[in-house]
């Protein structure tokens, strides 16, 4: 029996040991909680991402936006923490609640699938600001942001139609829903406007993150004649890389400017300026507005930008660029409204 006791003792020591570690961390987080009250002007932002911080698309664009906010406002004024790969809303919910408990001021849940989770949690933390997107439904302390992806898609579509030599523009879509549909519909309308006899061909991989599948779909698009391609979500970089293999084939990127990875392939990009969006949320919060607004990202306020790849500027005909710029002004002035598909 003596040995049993020795063993039990060992187990308890181990438990006490691990528990000790835990207590330490809790202490640390408690000090962190009291810190902002001492230095009230510091904004603490938590970011929850469905995919990885380096997806070169939706998630990374927000990460870069927050970095820009930190740079502009000062590292000591803005604290940013991130949790990634929370594709499941259950895990995301735990992360969001934990951040809220730890006293973060603004919690950005960067995915449309987080809407229900936020509605559930936000009630329990009335002093915290929550934001999510794409979406429209808000609450007193929830902002919904909503990129008008169709506007950028429209401009890129026009550009593609007036630049293509084969007369075929190919789209490598993920799953036919949400922002992808908005974007694709914009491209389609833009192509039709740009040049009447240019065709848009839309195909979907059925997955948000299968880059190999997207690459293969892009190859099929090209072998069927497309010479300018575009597509959205995490999987799109796979398609872009496949396009980069071929001379004379070009890519139009969305969410963020992807030309850093394929400088000889990306003609232009629709890029979201999350810095402005987040700065607006911070400002509203300072004015005491914790949520309740549906923030659209548009060309008008510069939260969507059209970026050209300088290196490939000569590949775009001058009249195409002029027409696109004109259309952009028309969108900003409200003269041109890009329609959304209504089923």
């Amino acid at each position: 029996m003596k040995k049993v006791l020795t063993l039990m003792l060992a187990v308890f020591t181990l438990l006490a040991f691990t528990a000790g570690c835990g207590t330490n961390t809790t202490d640390a987080s408690k000090t962190a909680e009291t810190a902002p009250q001492a230095k009230a002007e510091k904004v603490r932002i938590a970011l929850v991402l469905p995919a990885t911080v380096d997806d070169l698309a939706w998630c990374q664009s927000m990460v870069e936006g927050l970095k820009a906010v930190q740079k502009t406002m000062g590292e000591d004024k803005v604290e940013v923490v991130t949790s990634e790969k929370l594709g499941s809303a259950v895990d995301a919910g735990a992360a969001i609640r934990q951040y809220a408990t730890q006293g973060y001021d603004i919690i950005i849940a960067h995915g449309s699938q987080y809407q229900s989770v936020l509605m559930d949690i936000a009630k329990d933390f009335p002093k915290t600001t929550f934001a999510y997107g794409s979406g429209f439904e808000t609450a007193p302390n929830i902002f919904a942001y909503d990129p008008q992806a169709q506007d950028g898609g429209y401009l890129l579509g026009m550009l593609a139609a007036m630049t293509t030599k084969s007369g075929i523009v190919g789209i490598v879509g993920p799953v036919e829903s949400g922002d992808a549909v908005k974007f694709n519909s914009g491209v389609q309308q833009g192509v039709a406007k740009g040049k009447a006899d240019v065709k848009t061909r839309i195909a979907y991989t059925g997955s948000f993150n299968d880059i190999v599948g997207a690459g293969n779909l892009a190859k099929t698009q090209m072998s069927a004649g497309a010479d300018i391609l575009t597509g959205s979500s995490q999987q799109a970089v796979g398609a872009m890389r496949a396009v980069a293999e071929n001379k004379g084939k070009y890519w139009l990127s969305t969410d963020m400017d992807q030309s850093s990875v394929a400088p000889d392939t990306v003609l232009a990009a629709q890029a979201y300026n999350w810095e402005k969006v987040v700065t607006k949320i911070i400002d509203l919060r300072k004015q005491g507005i914790l949520g309740g607004q549906h923030l659209t990202l548009t060309f008008a306020d510069g939260t969507i930008e059209l970026k050209y790849n300088e290196k490939l500027a000569d590949k775009i005909p001058a009249e195409a660029k002029a027409a696109v710029e004109q259309a952009k002004q028309d969108i900003i002035s409200g003269k041109l409204k890009v329609e959304l598909p209504k089923k």
Partner: peptide, 15 residues
């Protein structure tokens, strides 16, 4: 998948 098709790597590449 990486060196014969995608020429890049991403999380969960095998899908």
């Amino acid at each position: 998948l990486t060196i014969g098709q995608a020429n890049m790597y991403a999380d969960n590449i095998t899908a």
